[in-house]
Each structure stands twice: as structure tokens, then as C-alpha cells.
Design a protein around this nucleic acid. Structure first.
Length: 418
RNA sequence: GUGGGUAUCGUCAAGCGGUUAAGACCCAGGGUUGUGGCGCCUGUAUAUGUGGGUUCGAAUCACACUACCCACCCCA
């Protein structure tokens, strides 16, 4: 009985790995340019972290976490998102005592028990950045700018930036009440899920997919009309900053993020090109998360960006996705003496930093060159008794089907010069 | 958790109640002896997801199960 990869997981095989390497190295590059440093946290955390961080009422906590007891009886959870662990590490390391803000990025796997579909897996991977300690909207703008710039560099087109403000502890309760007052008369007409949302999270009713509910909430009050002075001023400042950065955006009052910790800024980069799960990157501000997780009262802002969705989208956009690391030289040989000679030469090339390959299957010369061809080697070196005797190697240019003699001593230089 | 769809060689894919279950790709080898790609030839005692039904006869029909895909919910 064969064992397959668990439901909702995918292997990345060498034929695709170079694409991952590409986005990962570009990600590190841009983060460094923007002044973010990498943070690596464990794949698992104490369950309590997510209960407090992500929020007890969220779907993630209520039904999607991989939670288990370890052998010491501790409740452990595979991280379902990257922000809470980054916050925990920030607090754990006492980084809050240093000069602020603290700007970190991560590249991590995340785990959620969901029904897999296009652009959604149980193990998925995300890039993320966080700015801890900055309450100024310049920080939010910088975060969004990095996301926009990264997506641009990845060749993404036809993507929209939607922004919204979800208010704060002062104004959100007032809005929530206004919304409930508005919906109360229509309660009986709401769909079943929205009936339960009415008390738990009425703001979610706004982006319910059912047409009937959409009609019902068409004239519902919107959070942006209920923002307190502080939140409204902040939202205006953010827009001003984005204008200054030349970043297009759409104010979308219906964005309601699914994690409880968001305050003020909420944003998403969305596309329709990769199926139903079109949010490639989403994030926002969380002014109380750090405190919630046990740290000082400090604000934060950040985003998460799905690597699988990014790759899907890059593919759709025909983006450059890196290059395969094909051999620069394939070392072919004829005869036993040449075999040892070839082995040593291959090592010499590799030691010099040249991607070199040779056959290990005992193929005949013809088969070796065939292999070189299918590996897409740039050159093949053919070694036989003659070559060993006079120290001149036959170097074949595979694409042009031409070959010439090259002194063994100048082989590396020859390869590099091309 | 709720819907819908699909299951035939490693991959793609014919087949529509009676066939030795096509074909293509991939892979291996050959085309005489140290030269790949294209074309040609040969080969691969390992394909009808599983289970029981209907039938003289099932890959083909109905059902159950399982797996995967897509969508809802929610999110990256």
C-alpha cells in the first residue's frame, strides 16, 4: 500500500524548486532593502498563544488548528499564521526594550485544517513582515509599499489593493451597535450563518456571499462613517502616504479581516486570476496584539503573503520565475582509465564552483551524451585515452553541436569565459 | 461541516454492454565499433480506484465506499 502526501499538502520536487528559491531570495532581498530582519520561530507553539493572539471567536481557532498534547501533557498547536509567533518572539527576547520600531520578516509554513481547494492547502507557506512599535501611519504605508513593490517585482499584473479602516476599541463598539440596530429588524431574513454572526461578529455579515443578504445590507452603516477622530485622521494620513508613494488603491469599506486582532488599517491585494482564493496578500494594524500576548502596550502592523498563491499568480502572469540550475559541464568518458580521470575532473570543476555532472549508471558514450542533453548541460567534455594522453579535452557545445580541443589546465577558464 | 465534478499504464488519453483495453508521451535499447537533440525501429509477463450488484457477458449501467479536484464557509 503506497503512502501519499497527507491531504492538503504538496511536495516540491526539483523540477519546481528553483521557482521557490527565486521568490525566496527576492523576498529576502527586498526585506533587507526596506530594513526588515529575519525572525525564525518554531513550527509549533503553546496553544494559548493563538487563543489569545488570533482570537477565540475566529474560525481559525475554533475549527482549523492542528492541536495536540505532547508527551509532557502540554497543549501544542502547529502555527496557523505567522504574526502571533513573531509577536511572541519579540516579547520573549525582550526586544521591546530596545530602540523601536522593530522590523522583522519571516518565511514560514502555516497549518490549518481546512478543505483543500485551488490556492488553499492545509500546509501552506507565507512570507510576512511586521513592524512593532510604530503607531504612525508611515509604518502602515511602508508595509503596504513593500507588498506592492514585491508583487510588482514578481511580475504581477491585474492586482488590486483594497484598503479599509476597521476602527479601534473606541469606535468599533459604537459602530457595531449601530450595525446591529440596523440589522435587527431584518434579522429573520438573514441566512443561518449570518444569524449567528449577528451576535458574534456582525461586521462579517457585510461581506456575506448570499445575494439576499447582500441586498439586505446594501444600505447598512459602514465602519468608515463611524470612525473616531483618531482613526479617521489615521486613515486619511495613510491615503496621503500611499498617494505620495504612487500606489493605487481602492477604499473598500467591506474588508473585514478574519483575525480578531486587527485595528485601524486593513488591506488586501486581490486578484481574480487564480480561482476563488484571490487574496494573495493581506494584513493590517494590530494595536493591542502585543499586549494581548503578554507584552507591553505597543502597536504593530504587518501582512502575510501566500507563497503558493503567489506562485500560482506568477504562472498566470507569465512572470519570470528563476532559472533551473542545469549543469554547465557534463563530463563524459570512454574506458576505465577515463572513468577515474573523469571522476577527478568532475570534482575539480565542482570545487571551482562550476556546476558539473557525470554519469553514474555505466552508460555508454552515446547514453552519456543523451543524458547530458536531457539535463540541458551547456557543455560536454569527452574524455578517452587520446585526451588523457595529450592533456587536451574535447569540449562540445551542446546547443551549437560544435566542439574543440581545450587544454585541461584552461578548461575552467574556458567554461567561465562563455 | 455543506455542495458539485472526476477516477483506464509513470503521464496524457481512446473506449458509450461482447476489442488480444487504442494511441501519444516518458523510460530502456537499436541503427555495428568514442558523440546528444529531429526522424526511424524494437521493447517495457506492472492500467480500467475499492466493494459487492444488474446481465449470458461490465472499463462501459445503477449503487456504496474511498481518493483527488473545484466551490461554499473562512483565509494567505
Amino acid at each position: 500500500m503506497a503512502i501519499n502526501a497527507p491531504k492538503g499538502t504538496k511536495d516540491v520536487m526539483p523540477k519546481d524548486a528553483y521557482k521557490w528559491h527565486y521568490i525566496e531570495s527576492e523576498w529576502r532581498k527586498i526585506c533587507a532593502e526596506y530594513g526588515f530582519g529575519e525572525v525564525r520561530t518554531p513550527v509549533f507553539e503553546a496553544t494559548e498563544l493563538f487563543n489569545r493572539g488570533v482570537g477565540e471567536t475566529t474560525d481559525i481557532v475554533q475549527k482549523e488548528m492542528y492541536t495536540f498534547k505532547d508527551l509532557g501533557g502540554r497543549s501544542i498547536t502547529l502555527k496557523p499564521e505567522g504574526t502571533s509567533p513573531a509577536v511572541r518572539a519579540f516579547i520573549d527576547s525582550k526586544q521591546f526594550a530596545e530602540i523601536q520600531p522593530t522590523k522583522v520578516y519571516y518565511d514560514t509554513g502555516c497549518y490549518r485544517y481546512e478543505k483543500p481547494q485551488e490556492g488553499r492547502l492545509r500546509e501552506f507557506h507565507q512570507f510576512g513582515i511586521e513592524n512593532f512599535g510604530a503607531s504612525n501611519m508611515l509604518a502602515d504605508a511602508e508595509i503596504i509599499d513593500l507588498g506592492a513593490e514585491f508583487l510588482r517585482r514578481m511580475g504581477i499584473t491585474d492586482i488590486e489593493l483594497h484598503i479599509n479602516s476597521v476602527g479601534c476599541r473606541k469606535c468599533r463598539p459604537l459602530y457595531r451597535k449601530a450595525l446591529q440596530d440596523f440589522l435587527r429588524p431584518k434579522y429573520d431574513c438573514l441566512c443561518d450563518t449570518c444569524k449567528s454572526r449577528f451576535t458574534t461578529n456582525p461586521m462579517r455579515i457585510l461581506d456575506c456571499k448570499s445575494q439576499e443578504d447582500q441586498d439586505l445590507v446594501k444600505d447598512a452603516p459602514l465602519m468608515i462613517d463611524y470612525l473616531c477622530d483618531e482613526c479617521r485622521t489615521a486613515f486619511e494620513a495613510l491615503q496621503k502616504h500611499l498617494d505620495a508613494l504612487g500606489i493605487d488603491y481602492i477604499v473598500d469599506p467591506r474588508i473585514v479581516r478574519g483575525l480578531d486582532y486587527y485595528t485601524k488599517t486593513a488591506f488586501e491585494f486581490v486578484t481574480t486570476k487564480i480561482g476563488a482564493q484571490g487574496t494573495v496578500c493581506g494584513g493590517g494594524r494590530y494595536d493591542h496584539l502585543i499586549e494581548e500576548v503578554g507584552g507591553p502596550d505597543m502597536p504593530g502592523v504587518g501582512f502575510g503573503l501566500g507563497k503558493e498563491r503567489l506562485l500560482l499568480l506568477m504562472d498566470k502572469c507569465g512572470s519570470f520565475m528563476g532559472t533551473k540550475e542545469n549543469p554547465q559541464v557534463f563530463v563524459a568518458f570512454v574506458g576505465d582509465a577515463a572513468q577515474e580521470y573523469a571522476l577527478a575532473l568532475t570534482k575539480e570543476l565542482r570545487t571551482a564552483g562550476v556546476r558539473a555532472e557525470m554519469d553514474t549508471q555505466g552508460r555508454k558514450l552515446k547514453g552519456q551524451l543523451k543524458l547530458a542533453n536531457s539535463l540541458d548541460a551547456v557543455y560536454s567534455v569527452v574524455i578517452g585515452d587520446d585526451e588523457i594522453a595529450n592533456g587536451e579535452l574535447t569540449v562540445r557545445n551542446m546547443a551549437e553541436s560544435t566542439q574543440e580541443k581545450v587544454q585541461r589546465g584552461s578548461l575552467i577558464e574556458y567554461i567561465r569565459s562563455k
